[in-house]
Design a protein around this nucleic acid. Structure first.
Length: 663
RNA sequence: GCCGGUGUAGCUCAGACUGGUAGAGCGAAUCCUUCGUAAGGAUUAGGCCAAGGGUUCAAAUCCCUUCACCGGCUCCA
């Protein structure tokens, strides 16, 4: 292929290539393809990166044209909406200093200094923004020299900083930069790489969500800023739909449902520590039993080790150093007045279970024939998470992991990890959860040498490949002792939470000097695999509550069947039915208060009971029941034995929704 | 931890700006009602207004401190 100085070649999404004169912009390429496309061009993507339509293309780039029908359009529009917000804020607060205002997954935000708004004023700001949209101001791009840009941003400390970073090539700029771009609309102008829509009128609908505080560059030591969150959509109806989704997320909030269904509480006297109420514990017990079965299948031996250890243990393992750096370990010197010794011993609450399992491994001399040696434990750990991090059951200080450690030979790593991943996949599938695997690699504060890390990451990669489900890589997110695979489940609000994990650890076996006697009669160092299928019972239950919105599958439901007697005459029949369910291990009750039937039904629905059995004199006489499920379906003249048999199957197969009344 | 907000009955919230006897709905208890597929009626009980300090003749209300929670930032299972 001959390539001249004056032309560049770009690759189009369909795989074809196009030669255009050097310096041609994204928009120029679009016109080259077709005038209609050119007219529609809003922005472009060069090698996947969103750029302005005025950006020149470069040789070898893969180019995509962003038009109003593209997914990226929303992002562009929201970026423009952020500018409109800044413009509106400046109209009301002329002295405000602008920091940054990017689009986000859900909308956009803009950070300001010198703005003191409260939630009540958001409506006024929205009105101001809407008037800017109505004015349909043209959004214009301007390329200016660094020198001129300096003059323009003079007195705006944050913009000055951004500009200087750009000028010195620090913020991702790969070449010397001579010019920067400004975007302006009406009296407003902002240093910005773009891209943007052509005019403010093209932003369909905007709204502001909330005010939050942040710091310049997200750094606590930097200046505090006020962040205003908003969102924008192409139409009012899309915006309304968005708010409905937010409301749905709020209705599903596990803290709200947990209180309403009386599942758990986190009292002020133990922040970050979940108290499981009887109904919440019923769910946890099911989860525990389920995981025990899985652990049995995987060949784990269940153990229990204490929460309290001397910190010496954690100093050997490296946890002490790691956790104390962030002040995350609960530890103290225990005064020893009784022994009159000068110094007390230092104790701590375990932040992880692994060191205790190492002790169990280490107690005996191990042969290669014993490996993999696997210990599992529902171990309760404590970490002193910073107060601002705590969040219901999802982020806590005291938590119980469905933990397990496998001590393996190097040649066993891949099959062991793959098998564990398969089971995690299977487990999360039983809950109907979408899961994404992430490979998290060596962090900055890692222990152990790089060659070990490389090898460990390679092992995990090949296990993930063997699983064949695809995965994402998160660089630098691994544990300090080894890389890990995180199984992330998505909650109702679209947040992803790490539930299961598999972590490789070459470091602790060395620090504890673990070994086994190999076939060759020499000592070898085993590798530790840390893993959890659900992660922690606390977090997993929180995710479950939101995922099911409190409408748990039969096997997890705190109350599975409620018998609703029509009147006092049939109380005896109702209780006999309930006792039959109890005999089958079901959680069942009789609504024997003096409420009306309608009221009893209403309550059972409010409490998300999967099945209601309504019985009156007719049913008693016929020896039948009337079944109603929480999806408001009804079935009359049902044989109770047949129903119970169905229930056993529904429970056993962990079906997600009551299906006795399915057609 | 940082920035902002909130804390009143078991729950959801009025009352606070402008200091002057603490309110409602739901829930609970009791009684009436004995009911056929999402709220029958009446009565009663429930609060050291998060905790501590201050201002004042007087504080749920104004000020300060602490604690907890919520939303972000940052950090993690």
């Amino acid at each position: 292929m001959s390539r001249q100085e004056s032309s560049v070649t770009v690759e189009l999404p369909d795989g074809n290539t196009l030669d255009v004169p050097s310096g041609t912009t994204v928009e120029g390429v679009a016109y080259e393809i077709g005038p209609g496309l050119g007219d529609d061009t809003v922005a472009g993507k060069l090698d996947g990166e969103l750029v302005s339509k005025a950006d020149p293309v470069y040789d070898g780039a893969t180019i995509e044209i962003v038009t109003p029908s593209a997914d990226e359009y929303l992002q562009v529009m929201r970026h423009s909406a952020a500018h409109v917000l800044a413009q509106a804020v400046l109209r009301r607060y002329p002295d405000a200093k602008l920091a940054t205002g990017p689009p986000t997954e859900e909308g956009f935000y803009y950070d300001f200094d010198g703005v003191d708004v409260d939630e009540d004023e958001l409506d006024d700001l929205v009105a101001e923004m809407e008037s800017i949209l109505e004015d349909d101001l043209a959004i214009e791009r301007e390329e200016v020299s660094i020198e001129e840009a300096r003059e323009r941003v003079a007195g705006d400390p944050y913009k000055e900083e951004i500009l200087e970073d750009l000028a010195s090539g620090e913020r991702g700029a790969d070449e010397d930069i001579e010019t920067v771009s400004f975007y302006s609309q009406g009296e407003f102008s902002d240093l910005c790489a773009g891209p943007h829509v052509a005019s403010t009128g093209q932003i369909g609908a905007v709204d502001l969500r909330e005010i939050a505080a942040t710091n310049w560059r997200g750094d606590e030591d930097e200046a505090p800023l006020t962040r205003v969150y908003g969102t924008a959509f192409e139409s009012e109806s899309d915006l309304e739909e968005y708010w409905e989704r937010k409301e749905e997320a709020e209705r599903r909030d596990h803290r709200r449902i947990g209180r309403e269904m009386d599942l758990f509480s986190i009292p002020d006297h133990s922040p970050g520590c979940v108290h499981f109420h009887p109904d919440g514990m019923a769910i946890r017990r099911e989860l525990e039993e389920y995981i025990r079965e899985k652990n049995d299948e995987l060949g784990y031996e269940e153990v229990w080790t204490p929460e309290l250890n001397k910190t010496d243990l954690w100093k050997t393992s490296g946890h002490y150093e790691h956790f104390c750096e962030e002040d995350e370990m609960f530890h103290w010197e225990q005064a020893s007045a009784r022994t009159e010794s000068d110094e007390g011993d230092e104790y701590g609450l375990k932040p992880m279970n692994c060191a205790n399992h190492v002790h169990l491994y280490q107690r005996e001399r191990r042969s290669y024939r014993e490996l993999p040696k696997r210990y599992s434990e529902f171990g309760t750990c404590y970490r002193n998470e910073r107060s601002g991090e705590l969040s219901g059951m999802l982020r806590v200080r005291g938590f119980t992991q469905d933990d397990g450690h496998a001590f393996v030979r190097r040649d066993q790593i891949q099959s062991e990890v793959t098998r564990t991943l398969e089971v995690i996949d299977e487990v999360l599938d039983d809950f109907g959860l979408d899961v994404t695997f992430k490979l998290e690699t060596q962090p900055d504060d890692s222990f152990g040498d790089d060659a070990l890390w490389e090898r460990a990451e390679e092992d995990l990669r090949s296990s993930l490949d063997a699983l064949g489900e695809g995965y994402e890589v998160e660089a630098g997110e691994g544990a300090f002792y080894g890389p890990k695979i995180a199984a992330d489940a998505e909650d109702a609000i679209g947040r992803e939470w790490t539930v299961g994990t598999v972590q490789l650890d070459f470091v602790q076996p060395e620090r504890f000097d673990l070994n086994y006697v190999g076939e060759d009669n020499d000592e070898h160092t085993p590798v530790m695999i840390h893993r959890a299928l659900l992660g922690t019972f606390e977090r997993f239950m929180g995710v479950m509550i939101e995922h099911f919105a409190g409408r748990f599958p039969l096997w997890l439901a705190p109350e599975q069947v409620r018998v609703l007697p029509l009147n006092e005459e049939v109380l005896g029949y109702a209780h006999r039915l309930k006792n039959d369910f109890h005999a089958d291990g079901f959680r069942a009750s009789v609504a024997d208060g003096d409420d009306t039937l309608q009221r009893k039904i209403r309550r059972a629905h409010d409490e998300n009971v999967p099945y209601m059995l309504i019985v009156g004199p007719d049913e008693e006489a016929a020896g039948t029941v009337s079944v109603r499920d929480r999806a408001e379906r009804e079935g009359r003249d049902v044989d109770p034995d047949e129903f119970r048999e169905h229930l056993r199957a529904e429970r056993e197969e962990k079906r997600l929704d009551p299906d006795f009344l399915d057609e």
